Amino acid sequence: MPDHQRKWTRRGLLVSVKAGGWWASHAQSPTVLALSPRLWRIYFAGRNRDNLSSILAVDVDPQDGMRVLDEHLDPLLEWGPPGSFDSTGLGPSCALTIFGRVHLYYSGVYPRNDVSFQIAIGLAISDDGLSFKKAFAGPVRGIGPADPYFVSTPFVGKTKYGYRMWYVSGTGWAQVNGVWEPEYVLRSCDSLDAIVWEAESIAVSADDLGDGISQTRPWITNEAGGMRLWYSRRGRDFRAGGKEAYRLFSRRMDTRNGTVGGAEPVIFSNPPAAGEFDSSMQAYCCIMQRPSGDVMFYNGNGFGEAGIGWATRDLT
């Protein structure tokens, strides 16, 4: 059976919310950096009592059942000053090591009066993966001709030509049950140094986009059959649950020409039951590959309201 068709086994909550101190709720957008074979650092967005997010982290041992080794539950990066692109929230999305330094790409949030938020993509750099300094006061990618509304949740990977960023691009806002909800697609752009990005971008082609269908949080893996794009998809009335709710998908991908396969749903051998933390939503996945099999970290109901879940699949 091809790797992408193998079912995943849900393992439950790995990181549960510990309300107390700064952290009051949520553990959204798990972003894993492999620091060594026995140390994976999971960055995530936790929220304070005012529902504003910042970047926290936990360390786990992937060779010991994801045993938690350490917790870093004070914000790793400060919000920007009033008027800046990240003045009211930060959320991690991709971390990679470039020339010995950790590059953490994040979504910066700032408020608007007409809709609920604006988002742009920032970059912070660290020598130890914990003490971060912003590369710039402004974003490394913001709104522009190809991205008129907002950009967020990037994945950055090394390519033959330098680096490529796959990211979410807002296409507008729609009123759903009296609330303005964002709509978005996936796009990609290139860079020679993973810092300065080309102004142009291309759409990540997909045939599953319809009225109100949106895609978010891209993640790329390299498999025996080539590259694979993982992402979350939801309908316009996603807060009602059911078929409109967030679900996880993957697609076979060509490096330069976008996706070339059909949308394939992530299938669990033990699907969530009513009342479980991920019963109505599975989203924002991060896939880590290891010889014994792949590991998925993801969010469940309420955008990670209970914490971070994980699942595995055996490829042997």
Rank of each mutant, 00 (worst) to 15 (best):
A27P: 01
G20P: 07
A240Q: 14
G21L: 11
W230L: 03
S188G: 02
K243D: 13
I98S: 04
F99C: 14
A174W: 12
S232H: 02
P30W: 05
T159G: 06
F277C: 01
R101M: 09
E244M: 09
N51M: 11
C286G: 03
D127G: 14
W40H: 05
L315E: 05
D208E: 12
A206C: 15
G309T: 09
R38Y: 09
Q63Y: 12
D3V: 14
G302M: 06
K134C: 04
A203T: 15
C285W: 05
V295S: 03
D61E: 04
D190P: 00
L123H: 08
D61H: 06
S188F: 15
D190W: 14
D3L: 13
Y298S: 02
S188R: 08
T312Q: 09
V185E: 06
F297D: 00
G65Q: 10
G275F: 04
N299K: 02
E200S: 15
D190G: 03
A306T: 10
P218G: 02
S126H: 07
I308K: 00
F136D: 08
P271I: 11
G91E: 12
S36K: 09
P30H: 03
M165T: 04
P37I: 07
F136I: 04
R41D: 01
D74C: 08
G91P: 01
P154M: 08
A311S: 03
V204H: 01
G138H: 06
S16P: 01
R217C: 13
Y43E: 02
S87R: 09
L39G: 02
S214L: 02
G144L: 05
Q282W: 06
A273F: 07
Q215S: 09
S29D: 10
D254W: 11
V185G: 00
G302I: 08
A174Q: 15
S269G: 05
T171M: 08
V60L: 06
V168I: 13
A34C: 12
I287F: 05
R38V: 09
V179P: 00
Q282S: 12
R41Q: 07
L73W: 08
R38K: 11
P154A: 02
L39I: 11
R164D: 08
F277T: 00
G261T: 06
A194S: 10
V17C: 05
S188N: 10
P139Y: 02
D86E: 09
R247W: 07
G242Y: 11
G122T: 05
S53G: 06
